[in-house]
Design a protein around this nucleic acid. Structure first.
Length: 413
DNA sequence: TGTCCACTGGAACGTACGGCTT
DNA sequence: AAGCCGTACGTTCCAGTGGACA
């Protein structure tokens, strides 16, 4: 209670201070704008491909490629939602369902999501995949619709589950009498073809579309358009806008990144009570985003993944080998009283950490002396110390000196 | 030239869990 | 209640391997 005056300041500043944002929502990546600059071609092409649906004919399956933030999802949603309302106008029985495979994650849940979109209820778990698929099919058939299924980030699905779901879906029309299914697959990975059964691939990509990355000037236009909706007039300097687009263009033309940068820059500026967003705010935003990403990743690791990182931290060499890490890790587990995982398991954890960019792992051969992975921290030692130091379980392990490090610093044994 | 180290990473399998159907 | 089911997380087993050294 007695502290409320501290907060008063914060709140007052927020209410009375510089208010740069008109509408923050516009900068979120799930916001679907009225216009999608530089994607007119793709919109038209997708529209044409999908249009037969309005005359109750099935449209071709479509495969869409492109890196993150190139507008694949936005264009697809944009076209389909318009198609749906057009269909309503004409009384055509068209429905679409958007599924993000990385978020949904498994075949079971994808079929469940599709079914729910048709108004069925499917339990969380308990049924076999086959059962869910059957329910989906019969439910779909009796609904008498043309069902357009959008599978975003299909690569995530295929890489670790195989392509049986896609196979089922591409063949489902053969068993449907009153309904039809059209598929739109969206992938960030251009090499997806290689993972796919050729039969599935050929039927999935009756039409193909490629989304090129935006260049800096295109990003500039996109940001300009969005910033008019999101910020009050005169609060965004031109140089700030340019640097946002330049930074994002350098990173494979990712519009999502550009929008993030702009939003965070706005927040930074607002917090500082600035009256306009400057280049400096954008640079700060960039650091801020990266910092948050890493801290977030570190905090959410499992105990053993954290211990792996901590082992690398303690070894404190330019490059540590798997064996050395395992020794330190074993000791840390002992000290903590935790059961320890096998070296094999540690290997996969290391690979995951590598994929997250927290660790750098490289397989090297040392000839006579075997073959192993060289590991290096990709996180600053201070940051790691800070984050893990606040961890309830790990706090005191940060300063612990493993005995494994005491004996010969050379390879002597 | 072949040997052989210290692992890597695939595959199959085990266990615990929450939750369904019948 | 019994019997399944999918998922997450781990283990066991093992064939495979790049290259320094003899």
């Amino acid at each position: 209670m007695g502290n409320s005056h501290i907060l008063d300041g914060v709140f007052d500043k927020f209410v009375n201070g510089a208010n740069l944002f008109k509408d923050r929502e516009v900068l979120r990546h799930d916001y679907l704008p009225e216009r999608l600059p530089h994607r007119e071609e793709q919109i038209q092409l997708l529209g044409q491909t999908v249009a037969p649906v309005l005359r109750a004919a099935r449209c071709s399956n479509i495969f869409i490629y492109g890196k993150t933030g190139t507008g694949k999802t936005a264009v697809t949603k944009y076209v389909l939602s318009r198609l749906e309302s057009k269909a309503k106008e004409y009384g055509a029985p068209v429905k679409f369902c958007y599924v993000n495979c990385r978020m949904i994650g498994s075949e079971y849940r994808i079929f469940a999501a599709l079914s729910q979109n048709l108004g069925m209820t499917i339990p969380f778990t308990g049924l076999s995949v086959g059962e869910v698929f059957d329910r989906f099919r019969t439910g779909l058939d009796s609904s008498r619709t043309i069902f357009i299924v959008v599978l975003d980030e299909v690569d995530a699905l295929i890489k670790d589950r195989g392509d049986s779901l896609l196979y089922e879906l591409t063949r489902i029309n053969e068993t449907l009498h009153k309904s039809k299914v059209a598929l739109i697959g969206i992938s960030n990975d251009l090499r997806l073809k290689e993972f796919l059964d050729p039969r599935v691939f050929s039927s999935l990509s009756e039409e193909e579309m490629v989304f090129r990355p935006y260049d800096a000037s295109e990003l500039h236009n996109i940001l300009l358009e969005r910033s008019r909706l999101s910020f009050h007039e005169g609060t965004l300097s031109d140089s700030a806008l340019s640097i946002c687009s330049a930074l994002a263009a350098a990173e494979h033309g990712d519009a999502r990144r550009a929008l993030d940068l702009l939003r965070v820059a706005g927040e930074v500026a607002e917090r500082q009570g600035a009256r306009a967003i400057t280049e400096e705010h954008v640079r700060e935003a960039e650091k801020h985003i990266e910092h948050n990403r890493v801290v977030d990743a570190l905090q959410n690791l499992t105990l053993h993944s954290k211990l792996v990182l901590l082992s690398v931290y303690h070894l404190n060499k330019s490059s540590a080998t798997t064996g050395e890490i395992y020794d330190v890790y074993t000791e840390l587990c002992g000290e903590l009283g935790t059961g320890l995982l096998t070296q094999r398991r540690l290997g996969t954890l290391v690979n995951e950490l590598d994929a997250m960019g927290l660790l750098n792992a490289k397989v090297v051969s040392m000839g006579r002396y075997g073959r192993t992975k060289k590991l290096r921290l990709e996180v600053s030692r201070t940051l790691l110390k800070e984050v893990f130091g606040n961890d309830v379980r790990l706090g005191h392990m940060v300063d612990y000196r493993p005995k494994a490090l005491m004996k010969g610093s050379q390879s002597g044994n």
